[in-house]
Design a protein around this nucleic acid. Structure first.
Lengths: 187, 187, 187, 187
DNA sequence: AATGAATGAGGCTTCATTCAT
DNA sequence: GATGAATGAAGCCTCATTCAT
């Protein structure tokens, strides 16, 4: 019976992932999840406490994974490779394995505890960029924040359109180069 | 002796503008508007036909203004000034008068007739950029689309943080220069 | 000021009569009355206590008139003229002077104290007919009731389509003759 | 193990049939239905999509049945039996099985897709009658229309009072004979 | 007397969640 | 473990009626 249970448990996550990805947390109904899984709505509540718990079932592990990788990236990036290559690597790994979760947690999480996650990431990125720039020329921190935001949302957009590894590499590289060049302007 | 008390009529628009700005059309309830205005929900309907009408009360005039300016910008940009200066001018005018409406109509309008407005603008911008680039080096149109999106959302972000004219000018100029430089990378 | 007041008082009745006639009591809003009169809704309540009172303002006097005439007709119909002529006379008088009120009170009064008026009239007519027939052949009183109803609703229908005196006379005569002949079948 | 408890599903239809029959579609509230069934209003929506769907749950099947029978009657009435017998048969079948539905669909359907159904039937009957009469003596088509209406509403009234087969037969026969005789007057 | 302004009750509908078998 | 059944809270909207000036 344990196997069957896990099967359903996972199918719920699968279905929910797709629905959250398409419609976001707020606009995904428990009914639509249950229907697509092929079980009753009340049965859903035997597996997960409530709608939010399903969301966290989809996202929590990825969140840990993403954050730890992100912190690693911030703390000690390998000095042998340039920063752009490093970024590109990290992002590609995330997207190629967890494209949908990445989009969900950053862009479809209104109504959950991850609501502000995207903002946090962008703020961290922004602070990081500030330390890289001798930004005595930048009057306001906002511009850097915006560029961090631009960059991160560019990545989200790429994630939304993910096709294959090669496509991903080339698009991310272009995006990274673009921003590197643009940032040169600010120094 | 006015037909309806302008004070409240305007307070409704004010309150609604702020709530739409914070939560978007979908997630703003008539109750929240009424509560914050300090009237009953049913009284709201004395001033506006329905929730959508309140939204359009906030946005319609701005929409006309925005679109006409945007078309003018696309059609005949003054050859005496460079494009970046031209963009900067237009945007500054919009933001300094209507920052919130600009954000609402582009980013908080799900459930209204302006739902697709931001996408339209970005698509137009994107196409415009493609004609400027000899983009034989750009493998995928997505990148250009993302950069148009980046640019436009950068502007939205600036709008969200608007402080004063001088601040606005300098931030927009920086953003424009940044993207101009970045686009150089794609040619 | 008294004159002005009466003017409005009467205009309200006029307008209400038309609206009740078109839409019935239930589906006529106080707003629509006030709008068409050209006054505010609240002003309506200075003239009449509530929507029902307006209805009775339109109908009460007619009700008295109708009932007294009807009773007279039942009690002592002139022996010099035949019953059909008598009926025809009475009905024509009612319809040519108060066509709309007649329809309203009999067919548009749901939600008022006259709700059951049509039924009452029909019942009385039905009883009256029973005394005229030696109805040992009629198994069930229902048929007579139906014929009374048929007859009365035929009259309502004629009232709804009232054009002029001549038209009225000829149509009522036809209807009366029809039913007289039909009733012959029951004797 | 049925998808929805048929008992309640049917009780809703039963209750709704009675309420529609008494108050019509417009003036029957979802609350009154739910109260009388003994469930919550929201539970109603588990069984039927909305108020209109409940109405159609009550009426749709009957509508098909009624119309097909009616068309058959108009198209090829058996030449071996006279028209009055034919009518009588058809109507008796309808009423003995579905008296209330018959009344609801013809007389209580304002606000639904069957709103105009009674008028249609009466118009068809009226036209049918006109072809039967050499009506050079009838000044106005209204009278024929009224008689068609009378006849049809007589049937509705009989439906409202239905007791048993024998009662039905005798009442309908009387009504039909009555109108046949009355129509003789118009030729 | 007049009216602009206000409102509570009620109507339809959706949805997350719980109950009972 | 599964699910059919149930529900309360909330959302949008209308309307008769009342309040305050």
């Amino acid at each position: 019976m344990q196997i069957l249970k896990d099967e359903i448990r996972n199918k719920i996550l699968d279905v929910a992932e797709n629905l959250f990805y398409q419609n976001g947390f707020r606009d995904t109904t428990t009914r639509s999840i249950a229907n697509e899984v092929g079980i009753s709505v009340s049965n859903l509540y035997l597996y997960y406490e409530n709608k939010e718990a399903i969301f966290y079932g989809v996202t929590d592990r990825f969140y840990e994974y993403f954050v730890s990788g992100f912190e690693a990236f911030l703390d000690h990036h390998d000095k042998n490779i340039t920063m752009d290559v490093c970024i590109s690597h990290y992002i590609r790994k995330i997207i190629s394995t967890d494209q949908k979760k990445f989009v969900i947690i950053t862009d479809k999480s209104q109504g959950t505890k991850y609501e502000g996650f995207k903002q946090q990431i962008i703020s961290i990125l922004s602070n990081h960029m500030k330390t890289q720039l001798n930004n005595n020329l930048v009057q306001d921190e906002l511009v850097i924040y915006i560029l961090a935001k631009n960059f991160f949302e560019g990545i989200i957009e790429i994630a939304k359109n993910y096709k294959n590894e090669h496509w991903l590499e080339s698009n991310i590289n272009t995006l990274v180069k673009y921003h590197m060049k643009g940032m040169g302007e600010l120094m």
